[in-house]
């Protein structure tokens, strides 16, 4: 029993070490010449554009539902006019980045984990390596950079759609012009709200790509390990998202106030 627990810890520590080595490998290949632009753009298409419908729909509905949920509470102490402000602050600072990142972890991290896992199982990664090509550079660097670049953009567009969802919900009950709503949202935000939120989405994107690639690239050779890679990529990436969220809030609060 004791030995098993110890080996559990050992394997976890060993995995952390492998992740650090993987990160080192990624950074080494990142600054090596011959960046795979074409594959990067294809990954941007797959990761960014193709996730937009999902992220956009979810964000829109989140905004709508939040506005509907907040309205009665705010009305009960006569602060209905605070609705755009509370929506803007909560969506931009927390709901938008985290919901988008969690959805991306579910869609993108699992996709990358499964794709690279199956490439590992069918010896494609080995084939690339043995042929003298650089699978790290072609498969991993492009994917991690694509998620790092696309998740922030998805979040920004998701924020906009979430606010539009809130606008729709407000207009179901009353009538507010888009201009007033927009002005109120903007007026309630400062750079101290926007910047930490934007910066953390970059980290979210990196973690999603990194964990997805690590789990896929290091999966075992066996059909079931593809599923394990995809699954653990989602679990670990989601966990990291919340950890990063907590750290960023703490750091940005310390820096700003």
């Amino acid at each position: 029993m004791n030995d098993e627990a110890l080996s559990g810890w050992r394997s976890r520590l060993a995995e952390k070490g492998e992740q650090v080595a993987f990160l080192k490998d990624f950074l080494k290949n990142l600054f090596r010449g011959g960046f795979e632009w074409s594959e990067f753009i294809r990954q941007c298409y797959e990761i960014g554009y193709k996730s937009f419908t999902l992220v956009g729909t979810t964000a829109f509905i989140m905004g709508l539902v939040m506005a509907m949920q907040l309205r009665p509470t705010l009305i009960s102490f006569g602060a209905e006019s605070m609705l755009p402000k509370s929506l803007a602050v909560s969506i931009i600072k927390e709901i938008g980045p985290v919901i988008t990142a969690i959805i991306c972890a579910g869609k993108i991290a699992s996709g990358i984990g499964a794709e690279l896992g199956s490439m590992k199982v069918t010896e494609q990664i080995d084939a690339m390596e043995v042929s003298g090509a650089n699978p790290m550079q072609f498969l991993v660097v492009t994917r991690i950079l694509a998620t790092t670049a696309m998740v922030p953009l998805l979040t920004l567009l998701g924020d906009v759609l979430g606010l539009l969802g809130g606008f729709l919900a407000i207009n179901i009950n009353g009538s507010v012009s888009l201009l007033l709503y927009f002005n109120k949202c903007i007026a309630s935000l400062g750079f101290s709200d926007l910047l930490p939120a934007f910066i953390k989405t970059i980290f979210f994107g990196f973690v999603i790509g990194f964990i997805g690639c690590y789990k896929g690239y290091n999966s075992n050779k066996g059909t079931e390990s593809v599923g394990i890679a995809a699954n653990s990529a989602v679990v670990v990436a989601s966990l990291w998202i919340f950890v990063i969220d907590a750290i960023v809030v703490q750091v940005s609060n310390t820096l700003i106030y």
Binding site: S118, E123, Q124, V130, G132
Partner: peptide
């Protein structure tokens, strides 16, 4: 490695690419 050819058991074709792109890759 560029002077050695290695044929894998499964063929190990890159399944996100067409046959032509598989050839072009190396």
């Amino acid at each position: 490695r560029t002077r050695i050819g290695f044929l894998f058991q499964s063929g190990a074709l890159y399944d996100s690419m067409t046959v032509r792109e598989n050839m072009e890759f190396p």
